[in-house]
Design a binder for these strands. Structure first.
Lengths: 136, 136
DNA sequence: TGGATTGTACTAATGTTATAGTACAAGAGT
DNA sequence: ACTCTTGTACTATAACATTAGTACAATCCA
């Protein structure tokens, strides 16, 4: 079972799907700080994509300081930066990004409740995977 | 204000975004059976894309029998598909848009819990404003 | 030191996406 | 018949995405 899931029928480019998947895995705690990502070649085999595609994603994540790569060693999830924004501005920052998000989902016909329900399900799955890390 | 919303920064191809948007609009009832879509050229202007891109989407929707096109007249929404299919696609649609959203907020240093909390507060305010519509 | 592993850097070839521009065909209305 | 609007079809071009293959550099380990 591959660590991530790409959909070849999705018109979204593979590299974009993969980058998103890794960032999401980190954001939701599936990949914790310090965790090691698969090697470029191994992940390419698992996902049935070219090694160059994986390498491109790893390089992008390195540039944006999401992972830390060491030649000959591997690539690892960085420590979550202690939010450059201070607490007062944090709320406003979150408000701003969510305000951009709401019209998008509502344009697709979803309610706030739909979104909350979906996110809570994700959050629950995240906790379960923490409590039972070696799950098959 | 354009009828649909495309995001040039989203790596998903424009034609795919537009096809998805139209199908969703139909699925959610924003575009009802018999409703007329904008002309190829007009929609191209509204969305700031090439007319060929819109034409490509219309042709794809015609091939899959989602719309009915008549030369020199316009393109119109066909009868709605069964709702079971609609609901399945809706879930996937929500999943997709949220998957795009999560890496974005986490890049700003927010957790899923932060987002859920914020959305719940919004949801509460929304209900209150419904109960008291004339409120400032 | 030698060998294996890992990330990185190229080139080349092929297919897809998006744009621009032009032209044609079918229907509506005058 | 004429004109306008609409969808459709085509060429050409540029940029991007994907794959394949090769080579190199840094690190670890025996």
């Amino acid at each position: 079972m591959p660590m991530f899931n790409l959909d070849a029928r999705d018109p979204t480019p593979l590299y974009a799907q993969l980058e998103r998947a890794i960032r999401t895995a980190i954001a939701t705690g599936k990949l914790q700080p310090g965790a090691r990502l698969p090697t470029v070649r191994q992940l390419a085999v698992d996902l049935h994509v070219n090694a160059n595609t994986v390498a491109k994603v790893y390089a992008a994540l390195e540039r944006t300081e999401v992972v830390d790569t060491q030649r000959g060693v591997g690539t690892f999830v960085r420590a979550a930066p202690p939010s450059a924004v201070v607490n007062e501005n944090r709320e406003r920052e979150l408000e701003r990004v969510i305000s951009r998000f709401i019209p998008e989902v509502s344009a697709l016909g979803f309610s706030l409740f739909d979104v909350i329900t979906h996110l809570q399900r994700r959050n629950k799955q995240e906790k379960e995977s923490h409590a039972n890390p070696g799950r098959k």
